Simulated assay, not measured.
Amino acid sequence: MAWIGGALVLAGATALVTGVLPAADAAATFDRAWPVLLFVVAITVVAQLAAEAGVFEVVAARLGVLARGRVFGLWLLTVLLAVVCTAFLSLDTTAVLLTPVVLALARVAGVAPAPFALTTVWLANTASLLLPVSNLTNLLALDRMNVRGAAGFVSLLGLPAVCATAATVGVLWLLHRRELRGRFRASPVPYVGDQTLFRICSSILLLLIPLLVVMPAPWVPACLAALALTATFALRRPEALQFGLIPWSLLLFAGGLFLVVGAVEASGLLDPIGRLSEHGTASVWAFAGAGAVGANLVNNLPGFLLLEPATTSPITLAALLIGVNAGPLVTPWASLATLLWHQRLVDDGVEFGWRRYVFVGAVAAPAIVAAATLTLSATS
């Protein structure tokens, strides 16, 4: 991703120097991008440090106790944890930090890891429709939706998001209903060495979650939480504060992508896409379908950035979000979260072939996108 990001930055800089991307358009792109990228950095630091303090492991172990030895109950609680983590801490956090925790929980319980692994990555994508902070695409769309913060976003996409999440859970259950039967022996909650650090991190997370919903600029509470956690770790565990906490590759990739898409938009190459908005209600389905196809062809973020200029209303923009958020379940590169998830599986020694992933995703993605789009059409 760093190499691709570097190439994108070079291409964007070339477009700026040659005049393909006017300076005014580049400045407008920067004004739009910096709050989003700052949020990504802050929430990544928060999630990494919270994991370092043992917060996710303790939560997962407590869910195992709450399941009372039932595999189906453990799976339902995993669904709940994946949805909450995705909604408030973003899909990439779920893919990177929750996946190994869920796999460890399945291993200790002695149950098949495949249903829990697929549940994590699918919900990391489809549940990212729930809140603006759940996905980078949502944050990018928020300023064009003409809605007031998270409340306005939820009023428009809340029901489709719930529908997409419910449809995902339903498909997952149909696929793995036999493996989710039976009982297991719950493992004890792991001991956390630095209880003070654990309590401080847990308190900051609990305070951050509602602030991300109610504050109009989510980067503000995310940055405050990141600074508070950094200061806490500087006092109690300074060795955890490493250069790698910052997602440099993602920043380079996203920054270069903003520049390149800005250049493409300024050149007029995207003008024909505007015809998608000329067909009334059908355009909602057109944007949802185009978003899903685009995400699986070139990745959800560039797919969104390329199609977004053609949207003409909050409804068509919401339909595009459904496509690029709930649709990237087929190809491995459809979302960064999927690639990060698979790398975690490899690191953990869990085999999950891409052929199987593509097959089940090709069946599930159209149904999930259609269910959410139908809800959007009916409620709008």
Rank of each mutant, 00 (worst) to 15 (best):
V17L: 15
L339W: 07
G349T: 09
N325Y: 08
I43A: 03
S377Y: 14
N325T: 11
L156V: 07
L37I: 06
F243Y: 10
A295M: 13
I43N: 01
F116L: 09
D31P: 04
A42E: 00
R177D: 07
A150F: 02
L21E: 02
T230L: 13
A112I: 03
F72I: 14
G256N: 06
A11W: 04
A161M: 01
Q195Y: 07
A318C: 04
L140Q: 05
G268E: 08
T137H: 02
S90N: 12
C163S: 10
S155K: 08
E308Q: 15
A23M: 14
L229W: 11
T94E: 09
D31F: 11
S267I: 08
V111M: 10
D25P: 03
S277D: 03
A26F: 00
L307N: 04
V101P: 01
A222L: 06
F39N: 04
A295Q: 11
V102N: 08
G291K: 01
E278W: 05
P314D: 09
R199A: 14
T311Q: 07
T165N: 08
Y357R: 14
L159C: 11
T119L: 12
G280L: 05
F184A: 13
L336V: 12
D271P: 02
N299I: 12
L37V: 03
A337F: 10
P132N: 09
A27N: 01
P188E: 08
Q242A: 15
R355C: 10
A124D: 07
A225G: 05
V133P: 00
F39R: 05
A13S: 13
V58A: 14
V17A: 14
A266D: 01
V45S: 10
L297C: 13
T196W: 15
A23L: 13
P314I: 10
A286E: 04
D347G: 14
T18C: 15
W333L: 14
A161R: 00
L336H: 04
F352K: 07
D271C: 06
T281P: 04
V293K: 07
A114L: 08
L180R: 08
P113S: 05
G353S: 13
V59H: 06
V133F: 00
V84E: 06
F198N: 09
L174F: 13
G294Q: 01
P332S: 15
L205Y: 02
A23T: 13
A27V: 10
L224Y: 03
L103M: 15
F253A: 11
S202W: 05
A61D: 15
T120K: 04
L307E: 04
W3L: 13
G193R: 12
V260I: 08
R178W: 06
R178D: 15
